[in-house]
Write a protein that binds this DNA or RNA. Sequence first.
DNA 1: CCGAACTGTTCCTTTTAACGAACGTTCTAT
DNA 2: ATAGAACGTTCGTTAAAAGGAACAGTTCGG
Lengths: 175, 175
Amino acid sequence: MDKLSLGTLGQHLQTLRLAQGWSLSQLAAAAGIAKSNLSRLEQGNGNPTLDTIWRLAVQLKVPFGTLVAPIAVPLGEDGVEVRLLDQGKDHPQVDAYWMRCAPHTTRRAEPHTPGARESLTLISGTLEAGPEGATKRLSAGDTLTFAADCPHLYRTRDTWATLLLSVVYHEETTS
Amino acid sequence: MDKLSLGTLGQHLQTLRLAQGWSLSQLAAAAGIAKSNLSRLEQGNGNPTLDTIWRLAVQLKVPFGTLVAPIAVPLGEDGVEVRLLDQGKDHPQVDAYWMRCAPHTTRRAEPHTPGARESLTLISGTLEAGPEGATKRLSAGDTLTFAADCPHLYRTRDTWATLLLSVVYHEETTS
DNA sequence: CCGAACTGTTCCTTTTAACGAACGTTCTAT
DNA sequence: ATAGAACGTTCGTTAAAAGGAACAGTTCGG
């Protein structure tokens, strides 16, 4: 997780507002905040209060984190953006990630612990993924499960790819 | 999405800090905020700035939304909490959800559009899910894909269940 | 026994986010 | 044309969040 970008929040805020047909004045009134406040936020200046963000997120019907860590954000150095969604506390241990890959990028991943497996579901775009040498091509809606205790990779061609990724350590069940 | 609870944030903030072995002074210093600020927040008073929350989330290594919309929060009326993670823009259309079910609850879902399928990955707990009459039992790390154009359900027994859920509308590919 | 280093809290001060009114625009209707 | 009502902006004021120092309560070691 990197640095906070105020400009991104502003852009994303405005995008969401327009997409839902709100005017700035309307949204401000509905959220119960001054429109001068909202105006400043959309311009990228300002450092909103949790209360303010919350009120806006409710009106825009977005899961909150979406507002500040926008999905359509410039990515990391390797063209891949990864967010930890949740971590299971049971056995086997499961880590859930949201991942987004720019076009024409390849991300190589080190082997995880022995017996580890990965499951992924493609949300949009196309992707080639799996153990090195045994990758599969996926398109939106497809799912894939493969052994992750060996080097594996994710590769895009000329499209973006967004996916959910779960890493299952120390597999116990065999279903 | 309901109202903002400041107390919950404070509790959750403190829980995370202690779980990672930080002292209040240490965390405040590492995050670059005044410890008086952090102290007040943990007590449930105050309405932190986005910058403040961000700095804390980075240090605590949590995906941000986790801080303010804690995972261990009381759930909806039916004992099920659902958050929209992402929506694909391609065809087929894919909606990605994070879902958490309390013990001993059953959630029935209406059929989606014809040809729709669902894929789910269990992060923790155990769950029985699938088309009504053809459900399967899952434990942490398991995945399941089933036709969702008929009534289907999710049922927990004596454990919580957390899972990722993808709804794929109007299936085009058949892989 | 007592200073030193730490814990977390409570003040007071400074900074600044939020408010509310006024502003210049644009568009519609009378 | 012109009053009206929207739009989004900019400004000065006010309320409050963040900073900083002093505080009492612990846990050390000499």
